[in-house]
Design a protein around this nucleic acid. Structure first.
Lengths: 135, 135
DNA sequence: CTACTTGCAAACTCTTTGCACCATA
DNA sequence: TATGGTGCAAAGAGTTTGCAAGTAG
């Protein structure tokens, strides 16, 4: 998962901005474009938000990062080589937790069998109420 | 599930606009605000898009409709008394299909047991590849 | 009548795009 | 030095809000 190689393999160039945005996503774990931008700016003041958007697009295209939709509509990005996980979003308190794939394996399997549908687990977000709020 | 009663019970008024928006959501089944607005305008030309947004909010608050996030960020609304279903969104061809709750019951159960997390199934969207695109 | 609703227009947020300048390979 | 990349500013999409006029109860 070397940024340099993945980019060059598709004719993209390695730039400090791209390195920074990837670092941001890896560090923040669940980064929205805004959050990634804020992180990047702490190290390099002049990086523009539009560069962040363009870079996230490129990084996703080359397969280094993925995104999921956690809240209303804000996409959040995470490193593609992070352990696969399902997001659990509590609609009462907003807390975001994670569940490991085995939890949903049966569902994934059922979807393939009944609908021929191949689920992308790392993009899966389950909304509901967390333990604290469920009562 | 009478609009009139549900609204009045919370001090809201029954208006033609609210009736129309609810009809739109019930008829369209998976309506974005724009789509609902388009449908409403076919019957009553002057209804404003901002009224549609406000009405969707009210209808959801009184429990007559619910929303899920199917694509990028556009919320789609459906009647709360429609049969519960899980949305399957194909990221390759965009097709939206539905799966019945039993398919995901085991997952829901597993989430409660392992995380104490109570999933809201009718808000669940699974992204992946449909049968046709999976090959 | 009175408070709740609506239409309209403007404001806002998030994201995308055009273009000249810059920097990687 | 030749593209591809970046910063900047402006344009777009989608959504929200303030306010005066309209209307349900």
């Amino acid at each position: 998962m070397k940024l340099d190689d993945e980019l060059r393999a598709r004719g993209y160039r390695l730039t400090p901005q791209r390195q920074l945005v990837l670092d941001a996503v890896r560090t923040l774990e669940h980064a929205t474009p805004e959050e990634a931008h804020a992180w990047v700016r702490e190290r390099s003041a002049a990086v523009n938000i539009s560069t962040v958007y363009r870079t996230l697009e490129v990084l996703e295209e080359v397969g280094l990062i993925k995104h999921a939709h956690l809240n209303h509509g804000a996409p959040t990005y995470h490193a593609a080589d992070a352990p696969e996980h399902v997001h659990l979003v509590c609609r009462d308190c907003g807390k975001i937790s994670e569940a490991s794939p085995p939890t949903v394996d049966l569902m994934v399997q059922a979807l393939v069998e009944t609908h021929g549908f191949v689920a992308d687990v790392s993009h899966l977000t389950v909304f509901g109420s967390c333990q604290a709020c469920a009562r």
